[in-house]
Amino acid sequence: MLENLKKGLFKTRASLKNRLDMLFGKKEIDEEFYEELEEILLSADVGVETTLNIINSLQKRLKEEKIRDLIMAKEILKNLMVEKLRGGEQTFSFSPSDSPLVILVLGVNGVGKTTTIAKMAYHFNQQGKKVLLAAGDTFRAAAIEQLEEWTSNLPHTGLIKHQSGGDPSAVIFDAVKAAEARGIDVLICDTAGRLHTKKNLVEEMSKIYRVCGKALEGAPDEILLVLDATTGQNSIAQAKYFQEAMPVSGLVLTKLDGTARGGIIFAVKEITGIPVKLIGTGEKLEDLQPFQAEDYVEALLY
């Protein structure tokens, strides 16, 4: 994963790498060192507050432990950042049982929800699992067709759909029932992604969540929120809104194959407590990987 990430994160960012080499190749830890570190974190979308937090913690540690060595400082910085992402990031375990594993996938329009769903379906298919998709975005034009097209390319994946414009929670209900009846291993539900400021979207999501639990006790098993690494500070607001509707269990950070680094996940984790579970690193079906905090920080910093 590290190779992929590095390749992805720094495809055109050789300059940044050099800058970091310069930063840690300096003679001493001075004002300028911290300024440059600030720049690196800010330009990775880490955000002002988190950046200052990280820098303050680093300063404090270095002072307390009287560390002047840059290599040690680098280690401390890395650990500091990794710690911030730790907790619950281990990807969901697939334990075989009679009832299907139900996964709800949330996210605003354009973050890569449908592609992520297709990638997950592919991943489970590869493991020999039977997958069913639920076309819960009944709002956006051709959202159902988009899932349909993916489904036709996947070997063991079916689709439950209603009419465009229909009630999304009805689709989810039917899909859960169908998954049970057909002995499906994994049910992955798409949802609408109209912008999260719309109150009715939150209401729609709450309803989907309730209906899901009614259709099958204990469902959903996973609620994944998809965030786009290209998005800036607004990701925090997105996570908050969706969390208001239901207990989001993990994040999927997509589009890490570009030049964006998605540093906002530090703040999202801190504020909402939701860990990153998966990352999207490309356009191919294989390009979905479990999140590893250490690898991520490494790729972000070096």
Binding site: S43, T230, T231, G232, S235, G258, T259, A260, R261
Partner: peptide
Amino acid sequence: VDAMTGQDAVNV
């Protein structure tokens, strides 16, 4: 351009 784009808007 998505108005929510972060720092990467410049590169894009």
